[in-house]
């Protein structure tokens, strides 16, 4: 039986890397005596796959995980068992059965919605922010240099930015951004923030920006669907 689990990763859990999250979930499954299905081979591991890796420091309301069990459990029972055995910072929101034939989460998730908050260095006019956001989106391309394993590479962020809005709140700038995500190209919110900061010469403190993922979506060309519906 395969289950799709929607969970949040907040507070102290935001500092936990993706790899450590995989281990954390594995241990929670064992503590909860949840009958995991194991892969074959010399080094069997629980059959589970995550929708999207979350960078260290980023919080999220909606992350997804597909999990196979060796026995049939009611989704409610699985949700309750996980609730009791996951450490602080992780919370399970929804659990539902999915078909064993349904495509991998990683291959269908293609949009991510973020809220990014960054400290301003000095006063900025609210109108100026709206103007900057508009101009930024009007750019035909937004080229940034990225460090990859093979060295520096230039990428264009623009095609991967679907929506962008900005507002001020106290001494912080808040950007909401809907970005390309997943195996066909992944745009990182911190790259968009840096590019926006450079473009607007805002002098934001990019290193302490608080990035929060509001949702992940499956965009099928017409509608934005939650992976739970997919």
């Amino acid at each position: 039986m395969r289950y799709r689990i929607e969970f949040s990763k907040l507070r102290e859990a935001r500092f936990v890397s993706h790899l450590d999250t995989v281990k954390t979930v594995e241990r929670a499954l064992r503590r909860g005596k949840i009958p995991m299905a194991f892969s074959e081979g010399f080094n069997p591991h629980p059959k589970m796959s995550f929708g999207s890796a979350l960078a260290v420091g980023v919080t999220s309301d909606k992350e997804y995980l597909d999990l196979e069990l060796a026995r049939d459990w009611e989704p409610d029972r699985l949700q309750e068992a996980l609730r009791q055995s996951l450490p602080s910072g992780y919370r399970v929101n929804r659990v539902s059965r999915v078909s064993l034939r349904s495509p991998a989460l990683m291959s269908v998730i293609n949009r991510a919605d973020y809220l990014v908050r960054a400290y301003l260095n000095g006063p900025v006019e609210s109108a100026a922010v709206s103007e900057l956001v508009r101009k930024f989106q009007d750019l035909p391309e937004i080229r940034v240099e990225k460090n990859t394993k093979k060295g520096k590479k230039e990428v264009d962020l623009r095609p991967g930015i679907f929506e962008l809005s900005g507002q001020l709140q106290g001494d912080m700038l808040i950007l909401r951004m809907l970005l390309q995500s997943g195996s066909e190209g992944n745009i990182r919110p911190e790259d968009v923030l840096s590019a926006f900061n450079d473009f607007g010469k805002l002098g934001l403190d990019v290193t302490t920006a608080q990035i929060h993922r509001l949702a992940l979506y499956v965009f099928d060309g017409e509608k934005m669907l939650s992976p739970m519906e997919g």
Binding site: R11, E12, F15, V16, S17, D20, R27, R31, V56, G57, P87, S88, G89, T207, T208, A209, Q210
Partner: peptide, 14 residues
């Protein structure tokens, strides 16, 4: 958020 391996200092473990 600025330091390496911040989960070292997170506390609140299981």
């Amino acid at each position: 958020p600025k330091v390496t391996k911040p989960s070292r200092y997170a506390g609140n473990e299981w």
